[in-house]
C-alpha cells in the first residue's frame, strides 16, 4: 500500500518537475536571456597581498596606523566606524596619551545631554567612546549624499565578497566608462552623480573617488602617500576593524591544533594497542586453534586409513 501510494506521489512530483523543466527550456529558447552590462563588465577584485593574510600573517602596525590616518583624514567625513572604540587603537601601538588626544580632537563630537538644562548637546570624545557617526541619523546621511547612504566601515572587510581585496580594488578602480560598454548597452550609461567602477557589483557607485591625488594624506612615518599606498593601507586598517581579535585567534589556534594533534596521535596509538588484542581474538576459529588442528589431524588420519 505504501509503495503504491508512494509510486503515484513520486510520479506526481517527477511529472510536475518535468513539466516545469520543459516549460523552462521552451521559455529559454523563445526568449534567450539578454546579456547585461554587469555580467560582462563587472571585474573580480585585484590580486593584492596584506601582511595579515594566511595562517601565519600578522598585522603590520605601521601600516594600520597609516590606514587609520587615511580613515581619519578622508573616509571619516562620510563613513562611521561605530563598532570600534578609541581605546581599541591601543592595539595599533598608540600610547594612552596619544589615544586621549585623538579622541579629544576628533572632528565629530559625541551626542550627550547638557547637564544643566537637559537639552541635547555634544561633548568631546573620550577613549571609552566608540567612533562617533558623522551623521545624526540615516535621513541626514542621505540628505547630505545625494540620497545614498555611506555604509558603516567597521565590518566592511567581512561584509563584502572578496574582503580587503575588494575595498582596495574599489578604491583604486575608478575609471572612465569604456566606450564599448556605452555602445553595447546604451541604457547602462553612468547616470549623473554616479561614478563608474567595474569592481562595484552594479558598476555605478554613488561615492565619488575618495583617493585622488598623491600626497592627499601626509604620513607621519614619511611613507610616500601614493593613491595605491593609501588604498592598501586603509584596506589593511579595515581588516583590523572587522576582526580586531584576528591575531589572538590564530595564536590560540596554533596551540589548540598542536595540542589536539598530540592528543589524537596518542589516542590513535592507544586504539591500535587495544585493537591488536581484539584482532588476535578473532583467530578463535583460525586454523591454528587446538580445535581446528585436531580436526585437521583427524582428516589426515582418515586419509591415512583410507590409503
Amino acid at each position: 500500500m505504501v509503495r503504491i501510494i508512494g509510486f503515484f506521489v513520486g510520479l506526481a512530483f517527477v511529472g510536475m518537475v518535468f513539466i516545469s523543466f520543459f516549460v523552462n527550456i521552451a521559455d529559454y529558447v523563445a526568449n534567450p536571456p539578454e546579456e547585461t552590462a554587469e555580467h560582462e563588465f563587472h571585474k573580480h577584485p585585484k590580486e593584492v597581498h596584506f601582511a595579515s593574510d594566511g595562517p601565519f600573517g600578522h598585522f603590520d602596525n605601521q601600516q594600520l596606523q597609516r590606514g587609520f590616518q587615511v580613515y581619519k583624514e578622508v573616509c571619516a567625513a562620510c563613513h562611521g566606524l561605530t563598532l570600534v572604540s578609541f581605546r581599541d587603537l591601543a592595539a595599533l601601538g598608540y600610547e594612552e596619551p596619544e589615544i586621549k588626544a585623538i579622541a579629544d580632537q576628533w572632528a565629530i563630537q559625541v551626542p550627550s545631554v547638557n547637564a544643566d538644562t537637559g537639552e541635547a548637546a555634544t561633548r568631546k570624545a573620550i577613549p571609552a567612546d566608540r567612533f562617533p557617526s558623522p551623521y545624526p541619523n540615516e535621513v541626514a546621511a542621505r540628505a547630505a549624499n545625494n540620497n545614498a547612504l555611506p555604509p558603516d566601515l567597521s565590518l566592511i572587510a567581512k561584509a563584502r565578497e572578496g574582503g580587503a581585496a575588494y575595498t582596495y580594488s574599489l578604491l583604486t578602480g575608478y575609471q572612465r566608462q569604456p566606450a564599448e560598454l556605452v555602445h553595447k548597452f546604451p541604457a547602462a550609461k553612468t547616470p549623473q552623480g554616479l561614478y563608474y567602477n567595474p569592481y562595484f557589483p552594479n558598476l555605478n557607485l554613488a561615492m565619488p573617488p575618495p583617493l585622488t591625488a598623491e600626497g592627499q594624506v601626509t604620513y607621519a612615518d614619511g611613507t610616500r602617500a601614493s593613491v595605491d599606498q593609501m588604498a592598501k593601507d586603509v584596506s589593511a586598517f579595515l581588516v583590523w576593524t572587522a576582526e580586531p581579535k584576528l591575531q589572538n585567534r590564530r595564536t590560540a589556534g596554533f596551540a589548540v591544533v598542536i595540542f589536539l594533534l598530540i592528543g589524537t596521535i596518542l589516542g590513535y596509538l592507544a586504539y591500535r594497542q587495544i585493537w591488536a588484542e581484539a584482532k588476535r581474538k578473532v583467530r578463535v576459529t583460525g586454523p591454528l586453534e587446538a580445535e581446528s588442528q585436531a580436526k585437521a589431524q583427524a582428516a589426515k588420519d582418515d586419509q591415512g586409513v583410507a590409503g
Partner: peptide, 22 residues
C-alpha cells in the same frame, strides 16, 4: 578507543575552520 581518537581527528578539522577560516 576507536571513537575517541577519531573524534579527536574530526575536532581537529573543526578547529582548523574555527581558528583559521571561521
Amino acid at each position: 578507543a576507536k571513537d575517541g581518537w577519531f573524534a579527536g581527528l574530526v575536532i581537529l578539522i573543526y578547529c582548523l575552520f574555527l581558528f583559521f577560516m571561521p
